[in-house]
Design a protein around this nucleic acid. Structure first.
Ligand SMILES: [Mn+2]
Ligand SMILES: [Mn+2]
Ligand SMILES: [Mn+2]
Ligand SMILES: [Mn+2]
Lengths: 234, 234
DNA sequence: AGCTTGACTTAGACAAGTCTAACTTTATAT
DNA sequence: ATATAAAGTTAGACTTGTCTAAGTCAAGCT
């Protein structure tokens, strides 16, 4: 007997295949790769895994088709996706794209039972007559909840070796003028060069200068890390 | 060095470490292993990864401690866990254990923004005065939803002559409005009346009306067969 | 001090999933 | 028919996360 449970990754491949077959009749590797934003060798690899589990019919260089089991599983996944997308869009008031993205993550951890409860909840909120007040409230209030730009951290949390842009400096920072003279101002790029393991001192590089400050003072400086690939010592 | 974003697995280790430190002061490998149900070598491996990312202080054979960054991240994860656990338990009426399990999965894909919206929704449902009816309904109805029937299929797979309830209709369905007018909506009962052997057309009966659609379009409609009579062989 | 024992780490295997580079197959255009 | 281009596969590297087996460390007990 074959395995009934497959990985999130394979679920996404299966889902993509089903959707492509539906809209274009033939599912080609390249399209799957584009849809999932992976390389074609990754697709070949996944197709072999799906074929080994009896979910698709796969012959090299021919478009894939879904077996009956594959179709059924793909439909279940797509249904979870669709149900959650509706919940996120209609109840939580996420944008269409956000709802879609988030649904495509939840679909892999959602069981039938939980899905059904989400459906029932959404259904009640949307259709019960005594919920007009709630609906109005959700409509008006939820869209105002915006996520913080959570990339921004205080300088003392910047990992060793990482670079970051200075987003803002609190005027509480002792010696702010002196630091500004050395180039530490809004918009400048700095790198965390050293952290004393016990001590309170950190060492950073800004432009051509290097400077040290107390770790707790560094909490007054907010930075946005640049894409994480700095050359790190250590 | 490393990315600021860590894997689900490392998030779980970090979460476990924070909880152990809180309840026992010292986080030992063996306890982490027991809590997460993994082997101690897996723990050693994970601890090295967390240390390399500056999230814990780790020296072989000594209990680990959280760095400031590690504590902050652990707290964020635990908060997401807690918030979702409350939602699943109090709103969706899952058991404590189910809510906990499911929360520990969702915590890894939930952003701050989405978390805040779940909180606002739960808050409104639990506390608004005009929601007593909804609360009563959820209290009585949701616990009756038990999972794992899972015989939901897309309409194109419904065998000839079989009846089914419409579970959901994707908005991708072309002509969705026209079909809705004819009675094809969530909850309606339909019967598969005909399938063209080659052609793409299927014919169904809904209420008193009969209608046809392309087979591939029918894949946008999910139905639950009424009399479990379908042949299961793949 | 030396022995015993449990905790912890290291070493090495493996599976999944991704990539790039290089190759093969199929389709298209002379 | 042959050359070229596109699509697809294979090979092999790398990362993450898990395991078992085999060691090392440290603490407590003779
Ligand atoms: Mn999806
Ligand atoms: Mn997905
Ligand atoms: Mn958790
Ligand atoms: Mn978790």
């Amino acid at each position: 007997m074959r395995n009934l449970k497959i990985s999130s990754s394979l679920e996404d491949y299966l889902e993509a295949i089903a959707e492509i077959i539906e809209s274009e009749k033939h599912a080609h590797s390249k399209e799957i790769a584009e849809k999932l934003k992976v390389s074609t060798p990754s697709v070949s690899h996944a197709l072999q895994a799906l074929a080994a589990r009896g979910l698709i019919r796969y012959q090299p260089h021919a478009p894939v088709t879904l077996t009956r089991r594959g179709k059924k599983l793909a439909d279940a996944i797509r249904h979870r996706h669709q149900v959650m997308k509706c919940f996120f869009a209609n109840i939580l008031k996420l944008s269409d794209e956000e709802a879609d993205d988030f649904a495509c993550k939840t679909e892999h951890i959602l069981t039938e039972k939980y899905k059904d409860r989400f459906v029932a909840l959404a259904d009640a909120i949307e259709n019960r007559e005594d919920c007009t007040g709630l609906r109005k409230y959700l409509d008006e209030y939820l869209p105002t909840i915006e996520g913080e730009d959570s990339d921004i951290i205080s300088l003392d949390l910047l990992p060793l070796g990482h670079e970051a842009t200075v987003v803002s400096i609190s005027e509480n920072l002792p010696g702010i003028k002196k630091f500004a003279d050395l180039g530490l101002v809004h918009g400048s790029i700095l790198q965390m060069e050293g952290k004393a393991p016990f001590g309170d001192l950190i060492r950073i590089r800004v432009m051509e200068s290097r400077l040290s400050m107390r770790e707790k003072d560094a909490a007054n400086i907010w930075v946005k890390p640049l894409n994480a690939n700095a050359n790190a010592a250590g």
